[in-house]
């Protein structure tokens, strides 16, 4: 049984007075412990889908079923409780945290809100979370703006796994990182997936990264699904025009060097 089922999702914005479909009749499923990648050029609707799935914005049409229940029917306290199971990591880890926050506060919030640990127990849980994502526990007292970009993204992952979610939406979560850091973060994500059986909705414009970590891929263009399938197979042999264009545009180290 699938973990997340998105059916006929649609969202329109008004752009210069005219309705403009950001997401148009999109359906897909994510299975437990699976990574589904959403790929596409900017404006293809990948980030809008992420925000719809997380109920940060409301769809105009369609349904979202999460863990066997109608996710769109939830509201208020019931929605906030269910959010524990569906987490997100943003692209820019600096913008994703309150600029005044410390690492400890960022990790304390989810534990406190969902009542996962008593006040006295929380520092120990925070230390455990930091260790889980490969950070020193001494980092807890530091301000978010004092630590490096890679450390910040690890803290963001720690915050996302604090509530033991079954699905994490990763919205360009490694795009802003240096390549050497990017590899480590991807390894961490894969390790978490193996250990905790977390599924990922992995949003990226980078087919190289998608090919390295995703099981399946959905390629979007102008809010619609252009093609989908096994990530390696689709990237090796894209059928849609946009899929071909994305593959052709991905820089290659070999065979394509300047003459």
């Amino acid at each position: 049984m699938s973990l997340l089922t998105v059916s006929n999702l649609a969202k329109r914005y008004r752009r210069r007075g005219r309705p403009f479909p950001a997401v148009d009749d999109v359906s897909f499923e994510v299975n437990p412990a699976e990574t589904l990648a959403l790929a596409g050029p900017s404006g293809s609707g990948k980030s809008t889908i992420a925000r719809l799935v997380l109920r940060l914005i409301e769809p105009d049409a369609g349904s979202i079923e999460f863990e066997g229940a109608d996710f769109l029917a939830l509201s208020g306290a019931a929605l906030r409780t269910r959010r524990a199971r569906l987490q997100m990591v943003f692209q820019d880890p600096l913008a994703a945290f309150n600029p005044r926050a410390t690492v400890a506060r960022v990790l304390d919030d989810p534990l406190r809100i969902h009542g996962l640990a008593s006040r006295t127990e929380r520092p120990r849980r925070i230390a455990a979370l930091l260790e889980r994502v490969g950070l020193e526990t001494g980092l807890a007292g530091r301000a978010i703006h004092e630590i490096s970009g890679g450390q910040r993204q690890r803290v963001a992952i720690a915050r996302a796994i604090a509530t033991k979610p079954s699905l994490i939406v990763l919205d360009e979560a490694v795009s802003a990182l240096d390549v050497s850091v990017r590899g480590q973060i991807l390894e961490l994500l894969l390790d978490l997936q193996r250990q905790e059986r977390i599924a990922y909705l992995f949003i990226s414009h980078d087919l190289g990264v998608i090919r390295a970590v995703a099981h399946r891929v959905v390629i979007l263009e102008a809010g619609r699904i252009a093609e989908s399938g096994d990530a390696r197979a689709v990237i090796a042999n894209p059928q849609s025009a946009i899929g071909k264009a994305l593959v052709a545009a991905t820089p290659r180290l070999h065979g394509n060097t300047a003459s």
């Binding site: 997380l54 940060l56 945290f97 509530t163």
Partner: peptide, 12 residues
């Protein structure tokens, strides 16, 4: 993003 992040973790 950090306001969206607070909503995602279920803050009131």
């Amino acid at each position: 993003d950090y306001v969206a992040g607070a909503r995602v973790i279920g803050m009131h």
